[in-house]
Measured scan of single mutants.
Amino acid sequence: GSMEQGFLPKGWEVRHAPNGRPFFIDHNTKTTTWEDPRLKIPA
């Protein structure tokens, strides 16, 4: 929902695949990933 959306880094969006699995869109680089960007520790 909109709650989890608010925690994503700037430029990211979460969508759900037809099977219900969430995936993440990085509008900054125009890419998608199954990995939650929030789980990655910034270098």
Rank of each mutant, 00 (worst) to 15 (best):
E4I: 14
E13S: 03
P9L: 06
I25D: 07
K10A: 15
W12R: 02
G1E: 14
K10R: 09
F7H: 14
T32H: 07
R15T: 06
P9W: 04
A43R: 10
L8D: 02
E35V: 10
D26R: 00
E4N: 13
N28M: 07
N28F: 07
T29R: 05
D26N: 10
Q5Y: 10
R38C: 05
N19P: 02
L39A: 10
L8Q: 01
F24D: 06
T31G: 03
E35G: 05
Q5W: 08
L39D: 08
R21P: 08
F24A: 00
W12I: 06
P42F: 08
P37C: 12
K30S: 10
K40E: 08
P37I: 02
H16A: 07
W12D: 04
D36H: 02
K40N: 11
S2K: 12
E4C: 15
P37W: 00
F24R: 00
E13C: 04
T31P: 01
A17K: 04
T31Y: 06
R21A: 07
P37Q: 01
V14E: 10
F7K: 14
D36T: 00
I25N: 04
K10Y: 09
R38H: 04
I25L: 05
P37H: 01
G11W: 03
G20M: 02
T33Y: 09
K40L: 10
P22M: 10
G6W: 09
K10N: 12
I25M: 05
L8F: 06
F23T: 07
G1P: 13
P37M: 01
H16I: 15
E13P: 02
F24H: 02
G1S: 12
F23V: 14
G11C: 05
A17L: 12
P42M: 10
H16N: 08
Q5C: 15
P22Q: 10
D36W: 00
R21D: 14
H27M: 09
R21I: 09
W12M: 04
P9K: 04
W12T: 03
P9T: 04
F24Y: 13
F24Q: 02
N28D: 06
H27G: 06
R38S: 05
T32Q: 10
P42I: 13
N19H: 04
W12V: 05
P42E: 11
M3A: 12
P18W: 06
P42K: 11
K40W: 09
I25Q: 04
T33F: 07
A43N: 11
M3C: 14
H27N: 08
A17S: 08
A43S: 12
Q5A: 12
F7N: 14
P37R: 00
G20N: 04
P9C: 09
D36K: 00
A43F: 10
P9S: 03
E4V: 14
T29Y: 02
R15P: 02
P22V: 13
L39Q: 10
P18Q: 08
P42H: 12
V14K: 07
R21F: 08
S2C: 14
F7I: 14
W34I: 03
N28R: 05
E13V: 01
A17T: 13
T29G: 07
K10D: 14
L39N: 10
P37F: 00
E4M: 14
G20S: 03
T31Q: 07
M3K: 14
T32M: 15
Q5F: 11
E4A: 14
H16E: 07
V14H: 05
K40R: 10
T32E: 07
P22K: 10
S2V: 11
E13F: 02
D36Y: 00
F7A: 15
F7T: 15
A43H: 11
Q5G: 13
F23R: 07
H27D: 04
K40A: 14
D26V: 00
R38P: 02
I25W: 06
E4R: 10
T31H: 07
I25V: 11
G1I: 13
W34G: 03
M3N: 11
H16L: 15
K40Q: 12
G20C: 10
G6S: 11
L8M: 08
N19V: 00
E4T: 13
P42R: 10
K30Y: 05
K10L: 11
D36A: 00
N19D: 14
D26Q: 01
K10Q: 13
W34K: 03
G11I: 00
R38K: 03
D36N: 00
R15H: 08
E13L: 01
V14C: 15
T31F: 07
M3Q: 13
T33L: 04
K40D: 09
T31R: 08
F23M: 10
F7W: 14
W34F: 08
L8W: 04
T32S: 09
P18K: 13
Q5P: 11
P42D: 11
W34P: 04
P42L: 10
G6R: 11
S2A: 13
E35K: 08
I25R: 01
D36Q: 00
I41L: 14
A17P: 04
A43Q: 11
W34H: 05
M3D: 12
D26L: 00
P22H: 15
N19W: 02
F7Y: 12
H16T: 14
R15F: 07
K40F: 11
E13N: 00
D36P: 06
T33G: 04
A43T: 10
P9G: 03
G6Y: 08
W12E: 03
P9Y: 02
E13Y: 03
E35Q: 13
N19Q: 03
R15A: 09
F23A: 07
I25K: 04
G20W: 00
I41Y: 12
Q5T: 14
E4H: 14
L8N: 02
T29S: 08
K40I: 12
P42S: 11
P42T: 11
W12C: 04
N19L: 01
P9R: 02
T29H: 05
T31K: 09
Q5V: 13
T33N: 02
F23P: 06
H16G: 04
K30N: 15
D36I: 00
R21M: 09
A17N: 06
F7D: 15
F23Q: 09
W34C: 08
P37V: 02
P42Y: 08
G1A: 13
P9H: 03
D36V: 00
